[in-house]
Design a protein around this nucleic acid. Structure first.
Lengths: 191, 191
DNA sequence: GTCTATAGTGCGATAGAC
DNA sequence: GTCTATCGCACTATAGAC
């Protein structure tokens, strides 16, 4: 007989998402989420630094995917190729069968400003991690920032489109379209 | 003898920034900020929806400047020209004599994750407002998102560089450099 | 202006895993 | 024995309701 089941953070996250979707984020207390999986409020806060964080644990692996995409690129790759590789590497996180989950999660986030703030900040930090990875590959500071943020921007726009109700293309196809449009637009910046 | 001095939000903001800089954000309570300008905690929360917001009232006028930059552009302007106009219009908010203030404010924000979240979210919303303004000028959805976020991204990178200790160029000069680099990089995206 | 719920923290106690 | 997951309690500040 085990005293605690493994995978507590995951169970808390799923319970939280269900409760948030059913009653709303603010109408759900941390104690209720904990109770839903047979734990106490205090234990909830042992796993997550705050209530919002329960929906964002897993972001780290997305960041890792981006960074790994940079690391795995060929030595001769240009900065922009590095960042495209990062984006492609991250695309693996969003197979078609994940769309329903992503849509539900996003609908909860879109309903609550506090969650939107956390989401925005996570993307900023993703950009910083990516820029750091590029700097380590010898890319200069400004180029690293620009390329990293272009990549995160493409990801963000692609994700928003990928979860739209009428969208059926794969994440990678959507992302490719977005990247092409970025190129189209930016080419009109006079040199 | 006046019953209340005008500009209460401004006075609260300045008192808050001073206290945050001196003791740290978390070590300063809303009641103390209110007390510093002779008001009660209750009055503080009448002016600001939460404690963080005291550092961000004024963001709306930055958004307005971006949007106005789009509105004032000539009818024939391309999407990218619209967004460059928006960025230029916003540059007026950052004359050289504002740098010390911006530096102090940013150092407080950089010290506290909760403030960084609010800042990130404000930029996201700025991008949305800008995209909406572009859509109203007849730009298609995807291009509007791309161009708006490019503009906000250029702004963010330029601002971070403008407040660096060793930076003496004007905001507009720094922003121009950033925009050029974006163009350089994005031109390498194959069509 | 007062009253209250909830988020979040600090510290100590318990009990299983190793 | 150590380490870690959990619980319990007391506490403060935020923020919203009345």
């Amino acid at each position: 007989m085990v005293r605690w089941v493994p995978g507590t953070p995951d169970r808390l996250q799923h319970a939280a998402l269900e409760l948030f979707a059913a009653r709303g984020y603010e109408q759900t207390t941390a104690a209720e989420i904990a109770q839903a999986v047979g734990l106490t409020e205090r234990t909830f806060f042992r796993h997550f630094s705050d209530k919002r964080e329960v929906l964002f644990h897993g972001q780290q692996s997305l960041t890792d995917a981006f960074v790994a995409g940079v690391a795995e690129a060929p030595q001769a790759a240009s900065p922009i190729e590095l960042s495209l590789n990062a984006l492609r590497s991250a695309s693996a996180f969003f197979p078609d069968d994940r769309r329903p989950y992503s849509r539900l999660r996003q609908s909860v986030i879109d309903d609550n400003p506090a969650l939107q703030e956390r989401e925005a900040h996570k993307l900023v930090r993703l950009g910083r991690s990516l820029a750091d990875a590029l700097t380590e590959r010898g890319v200069d500071d400004l180029t690293a920032d620009v390329v990293a943020q272009l990549s995160v921007m493409a990801f963000g726009i692609a994700f928003a489109r990928w979860i739209r109700a009428d969208e059926h293309h794969s994440f990678e196809d959507v992302a490719t379209d977005v990247v092409c449009r970025i190129g189209d637009v930016a080419r009109q910046l006079e040199p």
